[in-house]
Amino acid sequence: MRVAHKGTCQGSQAGEFLYSLFNSLIKVPPSHAPRTPKDLPQAASFAVFETLCPSARMKQQSHVPLMDHPTVASRHLHNYLRTYRKKSAFSQREVAYLLGTRSDTKISRHECFARVPSLRTVFIYEVIYRVPARDLFVGVFERAHHETLKRVECLRQHLQNRPSDPVTTHKIKSLTSILTQSRASAHKAP
């Protein structure tokens, strides 16, 4: 049996090999059972995921065509702690020591976006990596920035509908300057 994907990787008996290996490890559910030799590796990988990684549920597709243009929406990562740590050549344990914690689990959770660090920890990261917090936590910053601008716009519209007085005028001026300055400063990833 031969597995071959058009225009990509080919492997003689590779599918058969994977299929027998995965079948020996786990029982492939009937819904994921391969129908053709071409489906073998995909079916095997789905079965493995459902066994080893239950949270990683994926939609099974018999054939997904190769896309010529990227369509997956891509934003900044939640944070770039791992990138800066690796650039500094520190291990997670060393960073844990610098943070004043015993284990490196906390660092791992911050880097995997599983946990949001405390304000104190953010400042320590800023000291360790010599990078402003908004550059370390670009994703968080951008989300907060976007949400705040929306609220600023809402509040400005609300105040504009009110009868005019010096205090309201001053507030509207402040809100307008927030919007102008924020739009002018475009933020870039590291």
Binding site: V3, T8, Q10, A14, G15, L18, Q42, S45, L66
Partner: peptide, 17 residues
């Protein structure tokens, strides 16, 4: 080679190029 085929299938199942 089989692993590369499986990785290709995995990536394409998630609509990645």
């Amino acid at each position: 080679m089989g692993l590369l085929t499986a990785i290709t299938s995995l990536a394409r199942s998630q609509h990645r190029n």
